[in-house]
């Protein structure tokens, strides 16, 4: 969709939760891909002044430059809730969102560092008592108390949903890719540090974190008593697995049989 096509919604306050990402190859901090898409979706909806960015975490110089990547998308300021790495950020985010009075919160489907379980939007929606939709492809329209969105289904399909506001939505790879981050605005933008209450994350303390191990590939196990059976199973070609073969039918009858199967499988719309 072209950017000019989108009607900007007046008077809607949108917040996007952003995190520090990690480049999958170099491992350097960057803006997280899904979060940047969420910001992009917000910018398609409201003017940059009505869009606030929110990050909870510590603020080292390296992470700061990654966060400035979001400011380079044309937004003037980013709020950083100062939280140590071992803190549970959900209470702090909840308090801040209540304060801000945002009606729509956009999140990436999951982070790129730490636990990255993708739970934050769900916990926030539950605590705030807001609606939640995941896997958004596009927000079509917002009117008053509800909005119409397109949700991305597997296999390239889309589903239209009507969602009551206020809402928390998550965005993943199906949404429009984020615009480039411009260097100048990223430098000029403001990072506002906000002190807040810190809730320690007790449960995560006795976790064991290690670099990801390669998962073993699943082997095809053939249960057979003799070597001959094992060989036959390994060398077997596709056999007739009880399929139905219709011979000597008219094309119409054949087509009907196929149509019946397509209807049963529900692939025909």
């Amino acid at each position: 969709m072209r950017r000019e096509d989108i009607k900007q919604v007046q008077g809607l306050k949108v917040a996007a939760l952003v995190s520090v990402g990690r480049h999958p190859v170099t491992g350097r901090p960057r803006r997280a891909d899904f979060d940047a898409r969420a910001v992009e979706m917000g910018l398609s909806l409201v003017a940059p002044e009505n869009m606030s960015l929110l990050h909870a975490g510590e603020c080292s110089p390296e992470r700061e430059s990654a966060l400035r990547g979001y400011l380079g998308m044309g937004i003037g300021a980013l709020d950083v809730l100062d939280q140590p790495p071992e803190a549970d950020i959900v209470p702090a985010l909840e308090a801040r969102l209540r304060e801000m009075g945002a009606r729509l919160v956009l999140c990436g489907a999951r982070g790129e560092m730490g636990e990255a379980s993708g739970l934050v939007p769900f916990l926030l929606a539950e605590r705030l008592g807001w609606s939640l939709v995941s896997g958004l492809a596009q927000i079509e329209s917002v009117d008053g108390d509800s909005m119409t969105v397109l949700q991305a289904l597997p296999r390239g399909q889309r589903r239209r949903l009507k969602v009551r506001l206020p809402a928390v939505v998550t965005v993943d790879a199906a949404a429009q890719a984020a615009r480039q981050s411009a260097y100048g605005p990223a430098r000029r933008g403001e990072l506002r540090r906000i002190e807040g209450e810190v809730t320690p994350d007790a449960a995560a303390r006795d976790w064991n974190t290690a670099p990801a191990k390669k998962r073993p590939k699943r082997l095809k196990i053939v249960k057979a008593a003799s070597a001959r059976d094992r060989f036959k199973a390994a060398a077997a070609k596709a056999e007739g697995g009880g399929g139905q073969v219709l011979t000597g039918l008219s094309p119409q009858a054949g087509a009907e049989a196929i149509l019946k199967l397509l209807r049963e499988e529900g692939v025909l719309r």
Binding site: A238, G241, V245, L249, G254
Partner: peptide, 20 residues
């Protein structure tokens, strides 16, 4: 392909597709 198939129709493709 017929051996692999769950449903096989032995007929000319053009005619069956047209009927479908």
């Amino acid at each position: 392909m017929v051996k692999r198939a769950d449903l096989a129709v032995i007929a000319d493709t053009g005619e069956v597709l047209a009927a479908l």
